[in-house]
Design a protein around this nucleic acid. Structure first.
Length: 495
RNA sequence: CGGGGUGUGGCUCAGCUUGGUAGAGCGCUUGGUUCGGGACCAAGAGGUCGGAGGUUCAAAUCCUCUCACCCCGACCA
């Protein structure tokens, strides 16, 4: 429980991000394993909450969980050309089995005939099994999901945002028609959007990736993009229309009603522990982590206040009763009865861990039958009285309100930092120095222009927003080349 | 992987230029006083200075290599 200084956002945003993670004890660099992280209990508890919310929705939409091998035969990677080149540089490879001791030194023993790749994603090995399991249109759709860890040998890592190993889910489905597969792609994109909006309280923009940004091996990639507090964008989840690319590569065929054979149409979709990074950078402040109630491992921290043994007995009894009542309402409550810390330090302690609501219970409160409540994002001077009577109802209302406030605050921030830009000079001005906003601008649709814009400003096309996002205001001219453009696309610097 | 920076008790760092028996603050342990926004006093524990090799009578300090982390870039969820 060391005292932890958090660098203010305005001073050094990147340092602030790391300080928040450290102060809340979410994770730390493994140190002994390049680029990998250790997710500490408080961080993993948040991930478990996210998993629960996603998993329930996956099952509601007809998917089943399964598990596939961590190791993938090297030859599998080679079967889909784009996929292979896309992941080649990031693969960790297992080349040996067994160890031997020579002169007291441990050495590798048996070289494998065919090396294995530690999965960077599982399209290939799942494709192999789809081929085995799918024969008829009656076997379709096949709707699977896997919760697992994957490894990508990244050159530059940042906790949660990009690490060598990370935890995620990858959905893999096979369908009888392209139309059906496309429906699946959009359905799962909307599941991600719902979880971001209703659970993480982070507004996202749904869209399609440009050819340059799409997944290696996909026909099209869709994504949700979220704005962080520095105006940069973070890709929150992806949903891929794989077409028949993997079906052809792994010979996944089925016989249709007319007796003809065809390749299946596949999708894959994923979201990772990176969501925790999005959560941090969307809501947290200079006081540390801010968690939306629906993801908080601890909803309420009760801090009892006493001066002597008689008061201690009294306030602990009242606090304990409160805790029990709140727990019976399904809330997770921490009664902080540590006697080696004074109340003030406990306040900071729970605040930097992101606990949504603190209840203070002292002799005065016991006498009045109310606790002093402070929501995580309220000013210290804006504490509210929370009656002991029906405390669950009052606390529930405060938490619901906080959940809503966080979403609205994030939405308002995004609205204030999203701009339509029509001149190249204005475009460059927005992205000058380290600055970023969400810029809706016209683009001529070529990779060449996209790369030229990136070269000049470091901003990239985050997505081509779906019409449903309401940003489309008709055709125009490319902000860089003046060539015709059908619709505005979303530019930003990104994580 | 290219450029820059940093590695010294759990944490933040001083000491290195000019080699000579490892320091501070915080945290931790014990006891006491405290307790409504980061308490105080006293007594303790804890480090072969990231690792390996070299120079030297002697290395945290000088040299070489290596590993890790951070920042910028390229790559990427």
């Amino acid at each position: 429980m060391s005292e932890q200084h958090i660098t203010p956002r305005a001073k050094d945003y990147a340092q602030w991000y790391q300080d928040v993670i450290s102060a809340a004890q979410l994770a730390e660099p493994a140190g002994v394993v390049r680029g990998c992280m250790v997710v500490r209990p408080h961080g993993w508890a948040i991930w478990e909450k996210i998993q629960g919310e996603l998993d329930r929705r996956f099952k509601e939409t007809g998917h089943q969980n399964a598990a596939f091998p961590l190791l993938i035969p090297l030859s599998f990677l080679q079967k889909e050309a784009q996929h292979a080149t896309g992941f080649a540089m990031e693969c960790a490879v297992v080349t040996h089995a067994g160890l031997k001791t020579v002169d007291g030194q441990i050495q590798l023993k048996n070289e494998l005939e065919e090396p294995y790749v530690v999965r960077p994603t599982s399209e290939t090995i799942i494709g192999h099994f789809f081929a085995k399991w799918i024969d008829s249109y009656r076997d379709l759709p096949m709707l699977l999901n896997q919760w697992c860890n994957v490894m990508r040998w990244e050159l530059r890592t940042r906790l949660f945002l990009r690490t060598g190993e990370f935890w995620w889910q990858e959905g893999h489905t096979a369908h009888a028609s392209h139309e059906e597969a496309r429906e699946e792609v959009m359905r799962m994109l909307d599941v991600y959007r719902e979880v971001y909006h209703d659970v993480l309280a982070v507004p996202v923009i749904r869209g399609r990736k440009s050819d340059n940004e799409k997944f290696a091996g996909a026909l099209e990639t869709y994504c949700v993009e979220a704005m962080m507090q520095d105006g940069k964008s973070l890709q929150g989840a992806t949903s891929h229309d794989l077409g028949q690319n993997f079906g052809k590569a792994f010979n996944v065929t089925f016989q249709n009603k007319d007796g003809a054979r065809d390749f299946v149409w596949q999708t894959s979709w994923g979201a990772s522990t990176r969501m925790i990074g999005a959560l941090i950078m969307a809501h947290s402040d200079d006081g540390g982590l801010v968690l939306p109630p629906r993801l908080a491992p601890i909803h309420v921290a009760i801090v009892p206040i006493w001066k002597n043994d008689a008061e201690k007995a009294q306030v602990l009894e009242a606090s304990d009763k409160l805790a029990r009542e709140l727990r019976s309402d399904g809330l997770t409550v921490k009664l902080d009865d540590r006697d080696d810390k004074r109340p003030g330090e406990k306040y900071y302690d729970w605040e930097r861990k992101g606990v949504p609501l603190r209840l203070e219970v002292g002799p005065r409160d016991v006498a009045s039958g109310t606790a002093m409540g402070k929501s995580r994002i309220a000013d210290a001077k804006d504490k509210v009285k929370v009656p002991f009577e029906n405390v669950g109802v009052h606390v529930g209302a405060i938490l619901d309100s906080l959940q809503k406030q966080l979403f609205e605050r994030a939405l308002a921030f995004r609205a204030a930092n999203i701009v339509k830009v029509d001149s190249w000079a204005d475009f460059q001005a927005v992205f000058a120095d380290q600055n970023s906003k969400f810029v809706l601008a016209h683009w001529d649709g070529t990779t060449e222009t996209e790369l030229a814009i990136k070269e000049a400003t470091k901003a990239t096309i985050r997505c081509i927003p779906l019409a449903a996002e309401g940003f489309d205001d008709g055709a125009g001219k490319c902000v860089k080349t003046g060539q015709p453009s059908a619709q505005r696309v979303l530019f930003a610097k990104n994580y």
